[in-house]
Design a protein around this nucleic acid. Structure first.
Lengths: 329, 329
DNA sequence: TTCCACATGTCAACCGGTTGACATAAATAG
DNA sequence: CTATTTATGTCAACCGGTTGACATGTGGAA
């Protein structure tokens, strides 16, 4: 059986209360006693039962993290930073892969409540769920409006969309098409599209947007079929951009000569595997830290609740797929 | 304050014990009573406190998962499947990104014990830690020997290494170099290297292996500098392979004509971003499910402990970077 | 000498749900 | 009409650590 406080007390020759005092640094403790207790803990390989502790103090130091899947490099990296930063602040992460499925997300939400998590960070690409309005449960959203009172962290989607579109224009594209996720998702990421449309209209060009949930080849083939004269594509994520590049290659459309492509996200994985892809890099680490900070502020009751949206700057990466070719304007 | 069992009992007009009976389906319960209780729970938005429950039943349904980082597509995907499958069996996942750092891994190990996890799944690329020999704590390793009694899941590393090397040979390569992780890590993944060396020696060729912890450009540049006549590279993971491809391109070495390259892992991410890369695909989902099954078997005391190594089959993907070019033999 | 900071012990309540023992009563079966 | 099954209540112990109240005893300062 696992040793408990009373076992440690017995070995150390002190009372259980004293052990608890050592554990929590409360009251007066003599140096030798502290040593005896610590030695006993080591000898018994004792680790305090945090479950019991949590029950009494009504705090678990657990945070639930709900995202579509760690398998996607963007979320994988975001979750890495979330966990890493949370850990450095003494919090632990309960992982939930919702796969964008409403039913899974709901059941995770219940599970997290049963497990008495101190707070939840939930992320983009899930359909609307009203149930995030949980009394006394701090929540932070990423690129996603969860309820009227939950703060949302995003990168500067409008600015990113604007810069990406403007870059294609500057590099001489005359027919620019945008590929985005489904617009019915209520997410700040839609601002990328808004920015794209604004920039095009400002330049008297017609915005055309294709919608696709994932990096769906079929949609991209359709795009090429319907717009053979397209010479610039702004994809709302790098995976989609890479499929675009591939399809262009298949059709002997040269990049960047005939077609310029820019993606979105700029994960380390993409920067390693596909450094030639121009993209808009999101500050993933910054997003993660902001989200955790904000959540813990809520947990500690130190959040005044006035600012609901937090926007972090993006960085344009002008790489080979948008290079200005000689001979072009 | 959060409602508790006694609050539910009050609203439903029954005793706390009856509520518990409904919750756990124990003893006799009348249909109307069950309904009254369920209604009361809904009305109060009641979720049983699993912390309290765990304390009594001495079981948390938590499993700790320790891997270098969810940011890497391979681990990200593996962890996705681990969580997903564990979830389907009623278990929850506590996420730990060790970053391959021994100190972090140790502190995670202690954290997990304090949190009373039912078991731990830990993965490759961490240096040796003796402390995995924890009495009464089920552990499963992935591609990593944790202690003499912990079972290890791996894909068939020897077969994978053999097939990869053989493929390069079959496609006509005459000087094949291998790039691997540090050999001092005690992992079954070293069998990839063993297989490579065996195959080369069987063909009277000299095995040459470069070691690198990560996808390190410098090592790869050195390889090209020192062996300009190399015409086949077997990289022990796809990230490294992609850096090889890039360096080759930089040096105007054409792939696959002058140089054939094959990687290892075959994650979805790589298959999407770099489908031209030949690789050895690991059965990630299968690995995850086997690991969870084995862990839960241990937890349930249903593991006899006789078989310590579990090997799953790999799949060779012969794509463009190893294509046989016309004109070559 | 007196008082107070320091050090430790004893005891019991508490966190919220689980479980077994036992009591009671209605419905159903033999 | 009795025996059994079904349905529910009361009560208390328990899981393991936390905390406050209170007692006791030491040594040093005033």
């Amino acid at each position: 059986m696992k040793p408990k406080i009373s076992d440690v007390a017995k070995v150390a020759g002190v009372s259980p209360t004293t052990v608890s005092r050592v554990l929590n640094n409360r009251g007066y403790i003599g140096e030798e006693t502290r040593k005896k207790v610590n030695d006993a803990m080591k000898e018994l390989n004792y680790y305090p039962n945090d479950i019991a502790r949590s029950l009494y103090i009504k705090k678990t130091f657990l945070i639930g993290v709900i995202f579509p899947t760690t398998g996607n490099p963007f979320y994988g990296q975001l979750i890495f930073h979330l966990e890493n930063y949370a850990n450095s602040l003494g919090y632990k992460v309960l992982l939930c892969n919702s796969q964008g499925r409403e039913d899974k997300e709901k059941s995770y939400l219940h599970m997290l409540q049963r497990n008495q998590v101190d707070g939840i960070i939930a992320g983009a690409h899930n359909r609307g769920i009203e149930e995030y309005d949980i009394p006394n449960l701090p929540v932070v959203g990423f690129d996603r409006y969860l309820s009227k009172n939950t703060p949302v962290i995003s990168s500067d989607n409008y600015e990113g969309g604007k810069q990406a579109t403007q870059l294609l224009l500057d590099k001489g594209c005359s027919k620019i098409i945008h590929i985005n996720g489904p617009i019915d998702l209520e997410t700040p990421a839609n601002l990328r599209r808004t920015a794209y449309e604004d920039v095009l209209r400002d330049n008297n060009m017609l915005p055309i947007t294709y919608e696709t949930e994932w990096a769906n080849e079929e949609v991209i083939r359709r795009l090429f079929d319907e717009h053979p004269d397209c010479d610039g594509i702004f994809a709302s994520d790098d995976m989609i951009a890479s499929v675009v590049l591939r399809e262009a290659k298949k059709r002997k459309i040269s990049t960047p000569n005939q077609l310029k492509v820019i993606g979105y996200d700029g994960t380390e994985t993409i920067r390693t595997l596909l450094p030639e892809l121009s993209t808009v890099e999101q500050p993933i680490k910054g997003i993660a830290e902001k989200a955790v900070d904000l959540l813990i502020k809520q947990i500690d009751g130190a959040w005044n609740g006035d600012q609901l949206e937090y926007t972090l700057p993006v960085k344009l990466i002008d790489s080979e797929t948008t290079s200005l070719q000689k001979g072009e304007k």
